[in-house]
Simulated scan of single mutants.
Amino acid sequence: MPHEIAPTLQFTHQQQPTAIVAGAWLVHALSGRATMHEISALLNKAAQQKDLHWDLSQISSLDHIGAQMLWRAWGKQRPRQLTVQSAHEGLFIRLEQVSRINIPGSAKPRLTRTMQLGAQMLGLLNHLHSFTALLGQLMLDIWRFIRHPLKGPWKELSANIYRTGAQALGITALVGILIGVVLSYLSAQQLRTFGGDLYIVNILGMSIIRELGPMLAAILVAGRSGSAITAQLGVMRVTEELDAMSVMGIPHGFRLIMPKVLALAIAMPLLVIWTDVMALAGGMISAQALLGMSPEFFIYKLPEAVPLLNYWIGLLKGVSFGMLIALIACHYGLRIEPNTESLGRGTTNSVVVAITVVIIADAVFAIIFSKTGY
C-alpha cells in the first residue's frame, strides 16, 4: 500500500481568502491525537471566516469521516464558493440529503392542551366505533351460527373453552382458597369480640358468592386469557395470517372472534362456581380452626344465610364479564399494527382496560340489584 499524504489545511490571501484542503482525509489518517487536534483547530478557525473559498481539488483520498468534519465546519450547508473533485461530490450530496431529514422528536411539540384533549377524544371515539362494529359483526356471526349449527366452528369453540376454562382451574382454585382463608380469618377476629360467631357464614356466603367469586375469576381470566387472546391475534396480524385468511375468504369474526366470545361466556360461569366453592372451602377450614365451627354446620347454614338469587346473580356476572373480556381482548388484538412494539402495548392496554371495565360492570350490577337477593 503506497504511503498516503497527511491531511492538511492551509489558508491563502492572494486574490481572496481561500482554504486549501489537501492530503488524505481518511479515518485512520485523522485518528491521531495530534493530527485530530490540529485539524479541528484549523477547521474552527475557518468556520469563523465568512465568504471563504474552499478548494478541495488537492485532496488525494476522502471518506465519510473526513467529509463529515468538513461539513460540520461549513455549518452543515454547502459553502457558496467550493471547488471539489467529481469523485468526492457524492459524499457531500449525501450529507446534504441527510441534513434535510427531520429527526422524530427533535421538533418541539406544537399541540396545545386543548388540541391534545381533542386528539384523545377522537381516539376514544375511534375505539368506540371499532368496538361497536365488532359487536355488530358478532351478532351477525351468532345468528349465522344459530341458522347453520352444523357448519359452525365447533373445534375452535371447544379448544377455546379448554384453554380459557379448564387450564385456569388451578390458579383460580389457589386464589379462591387463599381469599377464603383471609376473609374468614379477618371476620372471625371481629365476630368473636361481639359473640357473633354464627354470622361468619352470612359474611362469607354473601361476599364470596355475590361479589368476590365473580370478580376474582374475571380479573384472573382477564390477566391470563385476555392477554393470550390479544397476543394471539396480534401475532397473526404481525405474521400476516389475518391477511391470508381474508384472501382465502375465511371470515375473521366467524372463525376467530365468535368462538372466543362464546367460549368465555360458557367457561366464566363455571369458573365462578369453581372459585366460589374453593373460597368457601378455604373459609370453612379457617372457621373451623379459629371458631371451632364444624364443616357440617357451615354447609347446613349456608343455604339459609345466602338466598338462591345471589347464586344466579353471580352466574349472570360471570357470563357478562366473560363476554366483555373476550370482546375487549379481540378488539385490541385486531388493532395491533405489524410491529413488536405495538404488540406489547396492545396486550398491556387490553388487560388494563378489561379489568377496569369488569370493575365498572360490577358496580353497575351492584346498583341494579341493590335491593335484590337479601
Results as ranks from 00 to 15, higher is better:
Ala228Val: 00
Gly105Phe: 00
Asn160His: 07
Ile273Ala: 15
Val319Ser: 09
Ile20Pro: 00
Phe321Ser: 02
Gly318Lys: 06
Trp312Asn: 07
Ala279Tyr: 00
Gln97Cys: 06
Ala87Pro: 03
Ile171Cys: 02
Pro338Gly: 11
Arg163Thr: 06
Phe194Leu: 13
Val238Ile: 15
Asn126Val: 03
Pro307Val: 05
Leu291Ala: 02
Asp63Pro: 02
Gln49Ala: 09
Pro259Met: 00
Gly165Pro: 03
Thr132Tyr: 12
Val27Cys: 10
Ala218Arg: 07
Trp54Asn: 00
Trp274Cys: 07
Tyr332Pro: 04
His127Arg: 08
Gln190Gly: 05
Leu264Ala: 11
Pro104Cys: 10
Ala361Asn: 09
Tyr199Phe: 14
Met69Asn: 03
Val358Glu: 03
Ala366Val: 09
His331Met: 13
Ile336Trp: 03
Val182His: 08
Val98His: 06
Lys155His: 13
Gln137Ile: 03
Gly136Ser: 09
Arg163Val: 06
Leu212Tyr: 04
Val364Glu: 04
Thr132Asn: 14
Thr12Val: 08
Gln77Cys: 08
Met121Ile: 15
Leu117His: 05
Leu62Ala: 01
Cys330Leu: 07
Ala363Gln: 11
Gly318Tyr: 07
Ala47Leu: 00
Leu70Met: 04
Gln85Thr: 00
Gly253Leu: 02
Ala361His: 07
Asp55Ile: 04
Met268Asp: 07
His53Trp: 04
Val247Ala: 14
Glu89Arg: 14
Ile285Ala: 15
Pro307Leu: 05
Phe369His: 01
Leu291Phe: 04
Gln167Glu: 10
Ala289Ser: 08
Leu42Ala: 00
Lys45Pro: 01
Leu198Ser: 10
Gln81Arg: 11
Ala222His: 02
Leu9Lys: 04
Met236Leu: 09
Leu30Ala: 06
Arg210Met: 11
Tyr199Asn: 13
Tyr199Val: 01
Ser99Cys: 09
Thr230Pro: 08
Arg147Tyr: 08
Leu204Asn: 01
Met139Asp: 08
Asn126Met: 08
Leu169Cys: 09
Ala6His: 05
Gly118Arg: 05
Ile336Leu: 06
Arg144Leu: 13
Ala281Asp: 02
Met258Ser: 15
Leu140Gly: 09
Ile59Cys: 12
Ile161Thr: 02
Val182Pro: 04
Phe365Ser: 04
His28Ser: 13
Ile200Thr: 05
His88Tyr: 14
Trp71Leu: 08
Val181Gly: 00
Ile161Cys: 10
Phe194Gly: 09
Gly23Val: 01
Gly333Ile: 15
Phe131Ile: 12
Gly105Val: 00
Asn44Ile: 00
Met1Ala: 12
Lys371Trp: 01
Thr114Ile: 12
Gly118Tyr: 01
Leu125Val: 12
Glu96Ala: 14
Ala19Leu: 08
Ile368Gln: 03
Gly249Leu: 06
Pro303Glu: 07
Thr275Met: 03
Ala24Asp: 12
Ile200Cys: 07
Pro149Asp: 04
Ala173Phe: 11
Met284Ala: 14
Lys151Arg: 14
Gly170Leu: 13
Gly283Gln: 09
Leu308Ala: 13
Phe254Thr: 15
Gly90Ala: 11
Ala363Pro: 11
Lys260Gly: 06
His37Asn: 06
Pro79Arg: 11
Tyr199Gly: 04
Ala29Gly: 10
Leu178Asp: 05
Ala24Leu: 05
